[in-house]
Each structure stands twice: as C-alpha cells, then as structure tokens.
Design a binder for these strands. Structure first.
Lengths: 205, 205
DNA sequence: CATTTCCTGGAATGACCGTTCCAAATACAT
DNA sequence: ATGTATTTGGAACGGTCATTCCAGGAAATG
C-alpha cells in the first residue's frame, strides 16, 4: 500500500559524509545538504531527524569505512612491517591529494569540544586505531622486524600519533614526496633497540 | 584634547585569543567576545574592525608567542637533543592539561579550507616550525647525538609531524604518561643509522 | 567652563540559520 | 480504480548571527 522510498539511505549518508568531510559541520548548511543530496528538505528531516543526527551518521559511516580499510591494509600485506608501511604510504597519498584531512580528526577539532556525541565517537575511533597498530607491531616483532624488547603498545600509540599528524601536515604545504619522507623516518623509528640498552650517541659506525 | 583609550589593546587581543582558542571561530559569537573582553560592542568594532579581523590578530599573537617559546626551549637547553626533548615534553604536558589543542592547528582544520588569510598564516607557521626543528637536528648532529648521515630536513619534518600530532592525540583519551611514551619513541627515532647502511632486522643483540 | 574626542550602552537592521508545517503529487497494493 | 502512506515543494517560524547606527556620558585640553 505505502509508497516506497525512492532513494537509497546509505547512498545519501555517503554523500552527506563527503560534504561534511569537505566543509566541516558549521560551514555546511541544511540548504547545502538539500542541494548536494538532491532530496527534499522534508525528506531529509523525515529520514535522518536533523542536521546533527545526519552528521553523526556520516561520521559513523566514515569511521567504519576507515577502520575497515586500515585493517585490510595491515592484514593483507606480506609482512606486518610492510602492512604498516603500506598504510602510511596510502594515507600520505590520500592526504596530499584531497587536503580535506581525516573526517574523524576534523570532527575531533571542530565538534568534540562542545559535543559529547562526537567526542565519544572520536575517542573510540582513535582507541581502535591504536589497537590495530599495536597488533601490527606485535606481529612485526614475531617476524623479527621489530626488536622483541620494545613496548608494542607504546609503539602503537607512536604510530597512531604520526599517522594522524600526517593529515594535518599535508594541509600545510609539503608535497607528496616530502610527506613520504616523514613516513620513512617514522618507520625507521620502529627498528631501534629497546630502552636502556646503552647505545647512546654512537656516531655512524 | 581627546579622551585617551581606557584599555590595553594587546591585552584584549590576548583575551580574545583565549576565547577563540578554547571555542574555535564559529562557536565564538561577538556577544561572547563582548562579555569576555569586558568592552563594548562599539569599541570592539572601532578597535579591531570586526570578528574576522580580531580572529586573525589573535592567531598572529598566538603564532608569535608559540614560536618564541619553541625557539627559546630549543636554544636554552644544554644540548640540542635535550632542547628537542624539552620541547616535546612541554607540549605533551600542555596538551594533556588544557585539551584545547594548538590554536594554529585548530585554525588550520576549521578555517583554512575556506579562509585564505588563515591558510596563509597556518602554512607560514608550520614552515617556521619545520625550520626550527631542522636547525636543532643539525646542531644535534654536530654534537654527535644524531648520526651525521641522516637528512636533517626530513627529520625536521618528521619531528614537526609528531609534535603537531600530539595535540590531537591528547584530545582523544591518553593520559599524560602515555603521551610521554610517544615522546620517547619519537625521540628514539632520531638515533637510527642513515638509509642504506644495511642494519635490517637485527634482533636485540 | 567649554570643546573636542573617544568611549559606552543599547536599539535596530538585515541576513541566514535549523526546524516545522501544510497541501499537493506520487506510486504502490488491494 | 481506490485507498493509503510517503514523497515533494515551498512557505513560514522563531532564533541568532555579525554589523551598523545613534544618542548620551566621560575625560582631557584650551
């Protein structure tokens, strides 16, 4: 009996994600969404509840997609260290191309301070990312690519920190090649000896 | 003949900086500024021109202050490596305390994409930071704390990337101690051998 | 005291915001 | 064909925004 919905909900969320991602929350008006998604004001409110709810759904969509991509990247590489490298190279490429940064990071900066819903999602996202990198480091240790004595959790945090920094760095000038250098330097940091092994200041052999 | 100004311009800029820093650009209304600065709406417009101009002045004030602090920190330490460490430790402490992040980085995320004035300032700020870290790395190389064969410019970018990442990281959960771990891991990355020295995967001695 | 200049308080403006509401059009199932 | 639920278009609402304007008050000079 009822008239069926004429558009794909998920598809619209994805389009909303693109817009919020590019412009941020405040800078995106409901009118922008109406225009960009190609659906009516009323449909938008009926389907998603409002701007804020749609934003959260868009953020969730991004988080899920991003996590999936990182997990695959780390899992499908020949070695754990290669997986980490590929993840960094990929993010460096994306960041220098699009300049939009990471949606989650943008949300953390713009909205999390005054929106608990966003803050909770952001913290969860970064926690998950740290866990993924930690796991990769542990695998790399089993494979002998990273010294066994080093703290895998700390290295996971170390990698997550650099990984997220790349989005910001890419927004401020450096070309793709220069960002790739950062990736290499960051990865080299994984190979050092554990703390207190007494390798202080020994110049290049 | 004229009545003299009854407030200190610089002081008001600093107060505006605090507010913009904490709340961001969009979330700070002119009314907020009027209340917080304790001066009249008309005075605000007469003195600064408008919200946007005041924001840029606040951002410039922050940039100058931040650069001065980093330069001092790097210069006044007993060794260059110590200077870098102190800079990182200090930023880690500040970041975990205040949760406001870095004003410049916040501006880069929130405003730079749609405000050329902000973008230009942000790029300049990060360029200066990279130069400061590069110089510190070069000094550390002269002192023998960093292998001479490594690319000082790349390491400067590497440090800047991690340094700025810390502000974001601190917003997403980790305690002060955990952030300090990141600092240590990042600094350890300075000590490795240059590229192509053939030290692949050698487990802990 | 008078005058000039700036500061002060608050009202007024016009634009845009997110949201709600209503009536008409539409497409399916019976 | 009829009925029903949901779409659609667009008007309307209340609120807030940045900005402007104006009249009165305050301070220093002459």
């Amino acid at each position: 009996m009822p008239r069926p919905p004429s558009f794909d909900r998920e598809e619209k969320i994805e389009e909303a994600m693109d817009l919020f991602w590019e412009q941020g929350y405040e800078a995106t008006s409901v009118q922008d969404l109406v225009d960009h998604l190609g659906l009516n004001r009323s449909s938008l409110y009926n389907t998603f509840g409002g701007k804020h709810d749609l934003y959260l759904e868009a953020l969730d969509h991004y988080r899920a997609r991003d996590r999936r991509r990182l997990r695959r990247c780390l899992r499908d590489a020949p070695t754990a260290l290669d997986g980490i490298r590929r993840a960094f190279v990929a993010v460096a490429e994306r960041a220098t191309e699009s300049q939009c940064g990471c949606f989650t990071a943008n949300a953390t900066v713009e909205c999390a301070p005054h929106d608990p819903c966003t803050e909770e999602r952001a913290c969860e996202a970064f926690r998950a990312m740290r866990a993924l990198f930690q796991k990769a480091v542990e695998r790399a240790q089993e494979e002998g690519a990273v010294p066994a004595g080093r703290d895998a959790e700390a290295l996971g945090r170390y990698l997550t920190n650099a990984y997220n920094g790349i989005h910001l760095t890419a927004k401020t000038g450096p070309t793709s090649a220069l960002v790739q250098d950062i990736v290499e330097e960051t990865l080299r940091g994984l190979r050092g000896r554990p703390r207190g092994t007494g390798d202080h200041e020994r110049p290049t052999s």
